[in-house]
Write a protein that binds this DNA or RNA. Structure first.
Lengths: 235, 235
DNA sequence: CGGACGTTTCGGTCTCGGCCGAAACGTGCC
DNA sequence: GGCACGTTTCGGCCGAGACCGAAACGTCCG
């Protein structure tokens, strides 16, 4: 073996750390304290965990005053976590089965995957963009389609800035729940940021991945993204 | 969190088990003894490990006389392992750096990923099949192209049998080394089986993933698969 | 400057699990 | 039937690491 898979797996293998990583999959950077709370451990314990996560390059940190904000180290980390989720057993947490079923349905419908949209909504979005010739598949890779430039301009996206990031502009990301690709890459992140900032979608709970599509968002998806969303799950 | 990521990660986190999984990524089913040898542990220890791997549904077993053959439980498991490999640190095993570099080059050029071809050769193959209209991308999924049926018939592939398997016929699998898709799914496995059986490619070492393309294979890739292979790495 | 607060370091405890060898089990072969 | 061999189970040893509280550190703010 040329790489040390066991080492990374060992870092993810602790329940507290796995919970922290899951919280970070929402894409927001969280403080050490918030992560300690999310994982249900003492701050000192969380600090140890974060040290290991940083050492393994799964998480990176940016200091801001007396807070230290942590976020996933990159899209590859998010992809690996989602791939692991696909083969993980369902949690048999009998106590809250009803709440869990609802949370499952919400996650399947709309969630963030690191920094882009996933779930039914994410998949529908990519499908619509391809159908409208704004994006196109070529050789298994996503490219801008004939009408892509005009669309980005209409959305006020600075394509040059997006292109200049080290990250690929367009990348498909295999959806853990639907098993179909959704839009990732720098553009996927930008669109998602736009949707959150414009109030098209909102987090159901701060620091959690599940999203709610607002009624304004439903219209905006139709008008600006050319995407007729399927109805959300009953809550 | 709706699934128990930490539990699966814990199973992969042990070096002995990770080594076993890596050996199984070659796609062959191996006996408990062979896996014990590969991992460098006593048979009794390996037996424990295999019990955990089975319990976690990462590995499945088929009994044959007094041997018990183990193999990966499915393509999802292989995909998760490759995703983990992408974010794993290189092993800093100074003692055998030269041998390692050579092994790296061989793996990058041609290897199996569970039961289909990966590496430069796998990616080139998928590209050629798409270029020749034998396969086609549609909505991010792989489909048979206009000339796909004729090609399969020429290769003596029983497409009905392939379709009847529970597994998707065509699936892209993101390559860990090249970061481009190669051909997976039932057809990917069938083509790979055909290539191994016909001696187009051969394992460099039994039970290991690296492949060598034979000179007959190089011709066959050109004539039967329409794929001009790039030159292999110097050994 | 001094107190409040977020974070990290340190020391001590305790549980989990990996390791082996010995022995039991089951299958194939003579 | 009896032996050989692959595999599993069991018991005992041992190290890694997860946890917490106390204390140190650094930053912000009054």
């Amino acid at each position: 073996m040329d790489v040390d898979t066991a080492a990374v797996a060992a870092v993810i293998a602790d329940p507290a750390r796995a919970t922290m990583l899951d919280a970070l999959l929402a894409g927001e950077a969280l403080t050490a304290g918030e992560l300690a709370h999310a994982a249900g451990v003492a701050p000192s314990t969380a600090s140890e965990h974060l040290r290991r996560l940083r050492a393994a390059d799964l998480v990176e940190v940016v200091s801001a005053g007396r807070h230290r904000y942590h976020r996933l180290a990159g899209p590859d980390v998010a992809a690996a976590l989602e791939a692991l989720a696909r083969i993980s057993p369902r949690r048999t947490d009998l106590a809250r089965s009803l709440r869990r079923v609802r949370a499952d349905a919400a996650l399947t419908y709309a969630r963030t995957c690191y920094d882009h949209l996933a779930g039914t909504v994410g998949v529908a979005l990519l499908d619509s963009l391809v159908a409208a010739d704004r994006l196109a598949w070529r050789d298994g890779a996503l490219r801008l389609g004939p009408d892509g430039g005009a669309w980005l301009t209409a959305l006020d996206m600075d394509i040059e800035r997006l292109r200049s990031s080290r990250r690929p502009l367009l990348r498909p990301c295999l959806d853990w729940t639907t098993r179909r690709p959704h839009l990732a890459g720098a553009l996927g992140a930008a669109v998602t940021e736009h949707a959150l900032a414009s109030g098209w979608v909102a987090r159901r709970t701060r620091g959690h991945r599940a999203l709610r599509v607002t009624s304004a968002g439903r219209d905006a998806f139709r008008d600006h993204l050319g995407c007729a969303l399927p109805p959300p799950p009953a809550t």
